[in-house]
Structures are given as C-alpha cells and as structure tokens.
Amino acid sequence: MTESESAPAATEPLTPEEELFRALKEEFGEAIRELVSAASPYIVVEPARIRDVAFHLRDAFGFDSLMCLSGIDTLGQKHSTKPLPPGSPRSAKPEPIGEEIAVVYHIGSVTTRRKVALRAPLDRRTPRLPSVSSVWKVAAWHEREAFDMFGIVFEDHPNLTRILCPEDWVGHPLRKDYEMPKRYAAWEHARRPSAAELAEPESRVAGEDASRAAEKNGITTENSR
C-alpha cells in the first residue's frame, strides 16, 4: 500500500455509519447501493435482499430492536434529502428525486447503543418486498400499518391485513395521489333517504307516512310508486 492511499483513512476516521456500510458492502456486494448522509444517515438497500441484510444486522452486529418502520411516498417531493456537497455554489439545487414508494427502517441496539437506518426504494405501481417480521417480531404490526397506509405488500407476512383503517376501506390514505373520499365508501350501497324523508323529518320513522306526505307535496318517491 502506498502512502497516498492510506493517508485519508488516517486523517479522517470512519463514522460508525461508514464502517457499517463497508462491512455490509463486503457481505452483500451490489445489494447495498449507497450511503446517504442526511441529518440521520441511511443506507439504500436492494429491496429483494432486505430480509437477509436485516438478519445479518441482528445476528452479526447485535441490532436487537427495530425502532421504527415507515412507508414513504416521494410523489411530489421535489428534492432528494441528500445534502449538497460542501463548497457547491449558492445557486446549486438539490438533485431531483424519482417517484417511488420506499420503506425506511430505523434500527437500534440496546446492547451496543448503535443506530442505523435502511431504505428500500420500491416501484410505485407494484410495491413489494420481503417481510422482516421473522427478524424482529414488532415489524408485523408496523408492516400491516405500511400496507394499510401505502399498499406496500410484504411477502411472507403472517397476517397482512389492514390495521388502523376499517377492513372495507378503499385506497391507501398516505399515498400522495390519494383522493379524500366525500363519503365512506361502504355506505355507497346503503339506501339514500328519499326527498320527502329529507323534507319532513317527523315522517322519517314511518315509511307510509312519508309517502303520504310526499303525495300531498306532489313528490314521487320510491314508496309511493
């Protein structure tokens, strides 16, 4: 090894994240894509390998707890959260970000007190990746929530059903292209009150009275027909 190669390592010690990133890169190669140094740095991982990486982090590095698992939809997010390189001009804009749905894992360790974040970017149309509920059991509920809110499908999940929204809810509310429904979709099939029922609140109870009242007012209702 020449002096010029070893010099940077000596002057700038690796941050814990860089160290971990190198170790993972050695183990998984291309599946570990990059290390992004945001306010909380994160490692971008190939979604299909996420469970293997998670198992490795738990067993080889002692990351015993999954602190948080979040879905995120980047539709409409103008910029990447990557900081600009130091010394870039004031007019420089952060790089644009693709439209993707991603899963972000915040992992911690009670024994070594380390923290790390992983990010698995997914295709917006068919977001699918392996479940990590066999690594940390708490992931089962977090993943159900991500499925509920973003429609992300976790393979090999013990019970992938909606958790916070009702079972008959339509759509995934936290997606950026979600349209707020005007009414609860399950009620669409319920009978609407007739015009006469709305006009005379007292007659709502008895249907016959309602139709009589409607005839008096010259309104045709379902009952009077």
């Binding site: 945001a38 306010a39 909380s40 602190m67 948080c68 103008k78 910029h79 990447s80 959260t81 974040a117």
Partner: peptide, 15 residues
Amino acid sequence: PPGETYARAESARGE
C-alpha cells in the same frame, strides 16, 4: 430545508 431525520425521546410510556 430538505432533509430527513429520526428523533426520539423518553416519554412516560417509552421511546
């Protein structure tokens, strides 16, 4: 400014 972070604190019920 654009960025992302995870912050935690000890509440009465945990993290």
